[in-house]
Each structure stands twice: as C-alpha cells, then as structure tokens.
C-alpha cells in the first residue's frame, strides 16, 4: 500500500546567534534541529516519535503540518506535496491535518467560551453555519463529553481532563485525516491521563486516523502506538514495532532510554544507566554519530562518520555502526552523574 505520509531527506536548520568573529568572516552558523529524515507512515497507522527535549521531535511534527518550512527535503501527506502548497490548496490541507497541543491550559483562548473555541475552526474552514451545531455535537460525543451546557463555559471553569478532551475535539471537529499529538497528556494528572490515552486509542481505531504521537515517555508511546521511531539530536536512530523496540532495542541510545523509564513498582535494584557522562548538544554534533559522546560502546568509526539508517531483514531500521554487534549485551558501565 502506498504510504500516507512520505518523508525523504527532510531537514530543518535554524540560524543561531553569531559571534563577532563569525559576522566578520561572513559565517552563518546553524543548528540542525532535524536532519535527513526518511520515513513512511501507512494510512491509519499511529507512530510514536520518542526522544528527549531538544531532539527535534516537535520540529518534525511542525514540519509535517507545514507550520515551519524545511531547509531541504520533501514531505508528502496524502496526495499533497508540502513544498509549494499555497492558497486554496493550503487551506484544504489545513482542514485535513491537525495538531494536538501539550498544554490544554494554554491551547484554548481563556476569554472565549468553549463552544466558540470549537466553532472557530469550522468558521475558518468555511463550513456553513447551519452545520456547526451538528458537527460540534458529534465531536463532543466522540471525545465523550456529555452535556452541551459545557459549551457556555470558559476554560478556567473546567478540569484539565475535560480541557484536554475539548482540545482534542477542536482538533477533530474538521474531521482531519492526519494528526500530530505533542505530549498530549504530560500536563494531566495521572487519574485522568489514562482516560485521554484510552480515548486516543479508540479514536484511532474508529476514525481510521493516521497519527504521530510525540513523547519522551516510552511507556505512554507504547500504549497508543504500535510503531515507534526514536530520535536523537535531529536524526532518526531507530524505527520498529514498539514491542520489539522495547524488548530488543538496537540502538545504544534506545537502550539507555529504556533503562531510564521509571517503573511504578517498588524497585528491585536497577542497573546503572548504560551511558557515558555527556550532554546532548545539537550545536556540537560533528561529522560522526550524534550520540558518540554519551555512547558506552562507541568505536573510532563513530567519531569519523555518521552511521546511516539501515533497514534490517524484517523491516526494523537502526543507525549504528555497531549493528548487529550493538545488540549484544555489554558489561554495565559505571555511571558518573555528571551532566
């Protein structure tokens, strides 16, 4: 089947502030937020995009929704090439794709009532006014909010869980085909978080949505996405079925991420993190692998050359010079807590 989302060589570099010397020499230093992304997402598939803050996961989401323009590379969503999309075609595109924001307390205008917030996308998209009430009723049903009286309330009169449902409803009211959800439950209390996650799962199934779920928490990604892509400082380092990635991580960074995930049980002793002390810094990525300064198993080649993202038999992908050696268990590395 043809991919619904088709991304090739997608990169985004942001200029950074120049020093005096750089200005005089006419240099234009940049930081590569996202580098050479290649991936496909099938129609109806939900993919988790996992990584630490600053790894480029949010920029990736924004690139796919054409909220920022790439420096190079191409992205196609459905039948539309994003480059050069404008005018009526861009407006149609905007109806088909939606972004679900992290913080429901910020995502809605505090000064307008919920009902108005929900109607706004419909107005912008030129949906006839007569249809508004029906569309809003339907979408509230979908996010399982009962009671139209809520529509007259203001955001501050609602709980976080209700607000996040409204934020979801707002994203869904135009019946998009592709959504990017950026850490949609990270601001919510645990007892309501599960409700939103369950809702997202059900909606994917019932609406056949294609979705990217951005998070730094593998346990949450696992709950909503069957496939996971792991990013590190702008590059994809691993891609595969979520369960396989968890049970048999291939990239050393993924292994560290998994080792760090907190468990909600009284812990047995846990292994030290398989990481060397070092900080991720997108400005300091050299010619080699971006992870080399923290990687416990790095070899000389890792500093010299960036490992390509290779596809393994079975379809998993990983960008590591030590493949398949990297999958062998290694003696634990002693952790020194420097950051």
């Amino acid at each position: 089947m043809d991919a619904y989302v088709h991304v090739r060589g997608l990169s985004k570099a942001f200029p950074v502030r120049r020093g005096v010397g750089q200005v005089l020499r006419g240099e234009h230093p940049v930081v590569h937020a996202v580098r050479d992304l290649d991936f496909d997402i099938a129609q109806g598939e939900t993919v988790g995009l996992l990584g630490e803050s600053g790894c480029g996961k949010t920029t990736t989401g924004r690139l796919l929704l054409k909220l920022v323009e790439p420096t190079s590379g191409t992205a196609r969503i459905g039948t539309r090439e994003l480059a050069g999309l404008k005018g009526a075609a861009l407006r149609d595109f905007r109806r088909d794709v939606q972004f679900v924001f992290q913080n429901p307390f910020d995502a809605l205008n505090p000064r307008i009532q919920i009902g108005r917030s929900l109607a706004e996308p419909l107005i912008n998209a030129g949906v006839p006014k007569a249809e508004h009430a029906d569309r809003i009723r339907l979408v509230l049903e979908r996010v399982r909010i009962k009671g139209v009286e809520l529509l007259e309330r203001f955001p501050h009169e609602m709980s976080g869980g209700q607000l996040q449902r409204i934020v979801l409803a707002r994203a869904l009211v135009l019946e998009p085909r592709f959504i990017v959800a950026d850490e949609p439950v990270s601001m919510l209390d645990v007892s309501v978080r599960a409700g939103i996650l369950n809702l997202m799962r059900d909606l994917q199934d019932s609406l056949g949505l294609t979705a990217i779920y951005i998070s730094h928490d593998l346990a949450l990604v696992r709950y909503v996405a069957r496939r996971t892509m792991v990013m590190y400082l702008g590059s994809l380092v691993e891609d595969g079925p979520t369960e396989d990635v968890i049970s048999r991580p291939l990239h050393p960074y993924t292994r560290a991420l998994i080792a760090a995930v907190p468990l909600p049980r009284v812990s047995q002793t846990r292994d030290p993190l398989p990481l060397r002390p070092g900080t991720p810094d997108a400005r300091k990525v050299g010619a080699g692998c971006a992870f080399v300064n923290r990687c416990p198993v790095a070899i000389a080649a890792c500093t010299a050359e960036r490992p390509p993202l290779v596809t393994l038999p079975g379809g998993r992908r990983v960008a590591c010079h030590l493949m398949p050696a990297a999958t062998q268990p290694r003696p634990p590395v002693t952790l020194s807590p420097a950051l």
Binding site: V190, V192, A194, L218, A219, R222, Y223, L263, P264, R265
Partner: peptide, 16 residues
C-alpha cells in the same frame, strides 16, 4: 492502575 508499566505487557489503563 492508571500508570503504564513498561515491564508489563499492555492491558488497559483505567482512569478514575
């Protein structure tokens, strides 16, 4: 119950 546990196979999380 509402917490996902990475080392346990996924069931359904139950919100309160």
């Amino acid at each position: 119950n509402a917490f996902p546990d990475l080392e346990r196979a996924g069931g359904t999380l139950a919100p309160i």
